[in-house]
């Protein structure tokens, strides 16, 4: 069991996939930007390389970067992979930017089966398509739900199947942006 330093991990990843972007230390942790098309290959290498052995996917989630104070502003959805190695006890964070309009990222479900559920959740709530996923469909919302709720420009539905969202006479001083009419 030998935990590698952040720089060593980044160098090892870059030797496999040279287009891996800059390393940005974020709270003492390597943060690698991976091009969307390469993520499945990078993932497989991270898992199989004996020195790296990232055998566990701690979490796979996404952040909608709309409204995030980037200069210049980005119109992307960032898919975040948090990896951990039980064998070596080191960690890494991968970040993949997918454009909002056509966000498709290769699935890593074949590398870590835990990703089957994580990717379904990101697909459901952010609308990111994972190509090659064995069962990509909504996991939390009903199948006929409109939109992807965790996107920053999501409009709350006014009703669902004709049942209004708010109670009679219920109102709030501030409220989330709500769609008109039927969902």
């Amino acid at each position: 069991m030998t935990a590698l330093s952040h720089e060593q991990i980044a160098a090892a990843v870059r030797s496999v996939c040279p287009e891996v972007g800059d390393q940005r230390a974020s709270n003492g942790r390597p943060f690698l930007h991976v091009p969307a098309a390469a993520v499945a290959d990078v993932a497989r290498c991270l898992r199989d390389d004996p020195a790296l052995r990232f055998d566990a996917l701690m979490d796979l989630t996404a952040v909608d970067l709309l409204q995030f104070p980037y200069t210049p502003p980005r119109d992307d959805i960032a898919v975040v992979y948090l990896l951990f190695s039980y064998a070596h006890r080191h960690k890494i964070t991968l970040e993949v930017f997918a454009p909002r309009q056509a966000c498709a990222v290769p699935s890593v479900a074949a590398v870590w089966p835990a990703a089957i559920y994580f990717e379904r959740e990101v697909f459901d709530l952010f609308g990111v398509t994972f190509t090659g996923h064995p069962q990509l469909r909504r996991i939390l919302m009903p199948d006929d739900w409109q939109g992807h709720p965790l996107r920053k420009d999501y409009l709350y539905p006014a009703d669902y199947h004709g049942v209004p969202h708010l109670r009679d006479g219920q109102s709030f001083s501030t409220s989330p942006p709500r769609a008109e009419g039927t969902s």
């Binding site: 974020s26 709270n27 942790r29 701690m58 979490d59 989630t61 952040v63 995030f68 975040v80 948090l82 964070t93």
Partner: peptide, 19 residues
């Protein structure tokens, strides 16, 4: 910034990824 912290809850790792 962003932070990822995991803690041991009774049902296992409760990991918060906060931006």
């Amino acid at each position: 910034g962003a932070v990822h912290v995991r803690t041991e809850a009774p049902r296992g790792e409760m990991g918060y990824w906060i931006v």
